[in-house]
Simulated assay, not measured.
Amino acid sequence: MLQLFDFDYIWEVYKPAPQRRWGYYALPIFYRDRFVARIDSRLEKGTWTIANWWWEQDITPDATLLAALARASSRFLHYLHAQEIVVNEIIDSPTRQALLAGARTALVE
């Protein structure tokens, strides 16, 4: 991923906790033609918990990107067959609200 996309990524699930930079199960987020963020989330007993979200340093999310995030979170919640979403309050407000807005759409359907 580093050579193709200039995106430094290592799946840290097998690293000891003190050696993790991003989180136990942090995954990359791809938008259009590049990786724009990382998410650390879990699905447990029907609840999708988003523990953390990191935008890449050179990304400033605009309304278009946040709307795409809302649509993606709606589809992903549906894919997971989750009945609930929990988004950690440490996540920046615009991102948190986009994730929750998408989830509300999915949960109503």
Rank of each mutant, 00 (worst) to 15 (best):
L2P: 00
L4Y: 04
F5Y: 15
D8G: 01
D8H: 14
W11S: 06
V13S: 09
V13I: 12
V13F: 13
V13C: 11
K15Q: 13
P16I: 10
P16E: 13
A17C: 01
A17F: 11
G23L: 09
G23Y: 07
Y25V: 05
Y25A: 07
Y25L: 10
A26C: 14
L27F: 10
L27G: 04
P28I: 06
Y31C: 04
R32A: 09
D33K: 15
A37C: 03
L43N: 07
K45L: 04
G46P: 08
T47P: 00
W48I: 04
N52E: 11
N52I: 00
N52D: 15
I59M: 13
T64Q: 08
L65T: 02
L66E: 01
A67W: 02
A68L: 06
A68I: 02
S73G: 01
S74V: 02
F76C: 01
F76H: 15
L77G: 00
Q83Y: 04
Q83W: 02
E84N: 15
E84I: 00
I85A: 10
I85C: 07
N88A: 15
E89M: 06
E89C: 05
I90D: 07
D92Q: 12
S93F: 11
P94C: 02
R96G: 04
Q97L: 11
A98Y: 10
T105D: 08
